[in-house]
Design a protein around this nucleic acid. Structure first.
Length: 608
DNA sequence: GTGTAGGGCGCG
DNA sequence: AAAGCGCGCCCTACAC
């Protein structure tokens, strides 16, 4: 997985030297940016121009053109950058162009932004510096320097401008001094695995992708032509045309909104209702077109598609999509004639092994709450799904036959109700919100009266979960005026600390609990704390499984919260799949008593 | 021109 | 007492 660095042998000698921060400055514009293209495509573009690099070793800040830097002096040392993946892509490009000698490499290259994210500090340099160092970089020169990629720049820089060009490197270095040692080895490994997985990328059916992109782009155009205003998605114009038709506009035009759906039914058959539905379709189709275009832009010479995942993108530690293309929110099923996931394919002579944890958050919640009775049913009956276990443990379902069969023969909605309760009520959702959750997740139509009753029954029959909300909220509140570090179970064995960090806990005038999370003050309550703790613990289970798989020779090509995707040799694919299932289900030592189940399947094309 | 907020849509 | 949570990206509108 990891590239073997020939310099690493010298690390002992060079480790005595302080780390060096490295920060490249590159040209960008509104139509050419990392945000749109991602690190790799941005650095492979003809418009690419790295006009400066600055370095700092704790003593002497240096800035200049990349070709003028003393790279030999940096070679083999410990480097740090803020958003390392970007600077790494720049270095590779400059080495390909012959600007920097090809043998130049650090012994190890840290990312101060990733370390900040782990510590639940702001990830951006400005926010991180304010939070950690108590001072923010001066961005006043940024505007003046934007668009400059003139090779004579450094002959014209005055002292103030030079200070600006080096200040990010200086701050990055100081930031790393403050946070580096608090970023555990295991987490650094996860960061490296994330980066290498994304740059390896995914196999894509490029032919189908191109055909689908054209088809959907045409469809989008014809839908737009049917709407008599521009821009076709303008809500302002839509409301104006509602006025012309003497129709009261809906409160929302979201396809999934209950009031909008009622509005559509009411005005069924009218032109304005057709326009409204077209707007829904345009949004969906346009989104698909944009995703397909983003995929095309990320095609590598080896025909794989590079992508980026953001390590610790979410406060509880989950990964998030990033870099202009989010591979974690691809449509699950076919829409407008396209199954997006099916465009991701197995390479020749391989199959995709898709493995996901079954109802992992629901299981973790029970485990964290210490609901031993329900966990025992789960462990003893691997054939039952979570909803049935919940119905048996808390809804009085006692019949020997599977709940699914019972519901089919008696036309009962008990299973759907159990599903809605499991998915909706564990984190203190209220009755009004539950109506929506039940409709979207379980297809149930419930009125407010029933919803209140169900919420009450759930809380009465799940005292351990209610107790968990209360305990977390009380413990947090007891930290008023201080920081609250809520440890994750994976830290219980001592090797790799990980916490949820709620800084400067406070109680507002109305007794509401607040704290600073990732640099921003947010409202908290027991439900949120339980959710964050649950989500983060589920993240650790996936992280552990990921590392276990890599150690056994299975490096995933994709990771989506509770799912890992591998490419395995078609020969003995079933054997590999069995191995992967075993690896995912061997829960770590810290998760004693937590029954983890993985569903695995082999596919030639990715899908749900 | 850039930055941002809100509505909307997609995922676990 | 009551309170779903965690993300990213596109489009439009609007402030600067």
């Amino acid at each position: 997985m990891q590239e073997v660095n020939p310099v690493a042998n010298n690390a002992l000698v060079l480790a005595a030297l302080p780390p060096i921060s490295v920060d490249f400055e590159t040209h960008y514009a509104s139509d050419y940016s990392v945000k749109e293209l991602g690190n790799r495509a941005y650095c492979h573009d003809p418009r690419f121009n790295a006009w400066a690099v600055s370095t700092y070793d704790g003593v002497t800040p240096w800035a200049g053109r990349p070709k003028d830097c003393d790279w030999q002096n940096l070679h083999g040392r410990e480097w740090v950058s803020h958003h390392r993946e970007f600077d790494k892509a720049v270095l590779e490009r400059l080495q390909r162009d012959g600007v920097i000698p090809k043998h130049i490499a650090p012994a190890v290259w840290h990312c101060s932004a990733a370390a900040c994210a782990f510590l639940q500090l702001p990830r951006d340099l400005e926010g991180a510096c304010s939070a950690v160092l108590g001072e923010a970089p001066d961005k006043s020169f940024r505007k003046a320097l934007k668009g400059r990629h003139d090779n004579d720049l450094f002959s014209s820089l005055d002292a103030e401008e030079t200070a600006y060009v080096t200040q990010d490197a200086v701050l990055c270095w100081r930031l790393w001094q403050a946070v580096g040692s608090r970023w555990p080895e295991r987490e650094r490994l996860l960061f490296e695995l994330t980066a290498s997985m994304g740059s390896h990328g995914l196999c894509v059916d490029w032919q189908s992708l191109d055909a689908e992109r054209q088809r959907l782009s045409d469809l989008c155009g014809s839908l737009q032509r049917d709407i008599p205003w521009t821009p076709s998605l303008s809500l302002k114009e839509f409301k104006r045309h509602c006025g012309f038709a003497q129709v009261t506009p809906p409160a929302s035009t979201a396809a999934d909104d209950a009031s909008f759906r009622a509005w559509c039914r009411k005005h069924d058959g009218t032109a304005i209702a057709r326009y409204a539905r077209n707007m829904n379709r345009i949004r969906t189709v346009n989104r698909l077109v944009k995703v397909l275009e983003a995929m095309q832009q990320r095609r590598k010479p080896d025909n794989r598609m590079a992508y980026e995942l953001k390590y610790y993108g979410a406060t509880p530690g989950r990964w998030s999509g990033s870099g202009g293309l989010n591979v974690q929110n691809m449509n699950r099923s076919e829409i407008e004639g396209l199954d997006l996931r099916k465009l991701i394919i197995a390479p020749e002579n391989k199959l995709l092994a898709v493995a996901d944890f079954s109802q992992i958050e629901a299981r973790v919640l029970l485990w964290l709450a210490g609901d031993g009775a329900t966990l025992e049913i789960l462990a003893a009956h691997p054939e039952m799904d979570m909803y049935e276990v919940h119905a048996r443990a808390t809804m009085g379902y006692k019949a020997p036959e599977p709940l699914k069969d019972y519901c089919e023969t008696t036309k009962s909605n008990l299973r759907q109700l159990a599903k809605a309760r499991v998915l909706g009520l564990g984190f203190r959702c209220g009755a009004e919100r539950f109506i929506e959750v039940a409709r979207i997740m379980a297809g149930l139509e419930i009125d407010i009266h029933d919803a209140r009753k169900i919420v009450r029954e759930y809380r009465d029959s799940n005292p351990k979960i209610v107790k968990l909300w209360e305990t977390l909220e009380n413990t947090c509140a007891a930290h008023e005026g201080k920081d609250y570090y809520l440890p994750f179970p994976c830290a219980s064995l001592g090797d790799s600390p990980r916490h949820l960090i709620y800084r400067d806990v406070a109680l507002d005038d109305r007794g509401g609990l607040t704290a600073v999370v990732c640099g921003e003050r947010v409202d908290l309550h027991g439900g949120i704390l339980a959710e964050n703790w649950t989500q983060g613990t589920a993240r650790d289970l996936l992280a552990d499984a990921w590392i276990r798989c890599v150690e056994s020779g299975y490096a995933p090509v994709l990771s989506v919260h509770d799912e890992l995707v591998f490419e395995v040799d078609a020969t003995d694919a079933q054997g590999h799949l069995t191995q992967i299932k075993r690896l995912m289900e061997s829960a770590p030592a810290w998760a004693k008593g937590l029954p983890v189940k993985a569903d695995v399947k082999l596919m030639t094309r990715y899908g749900k």
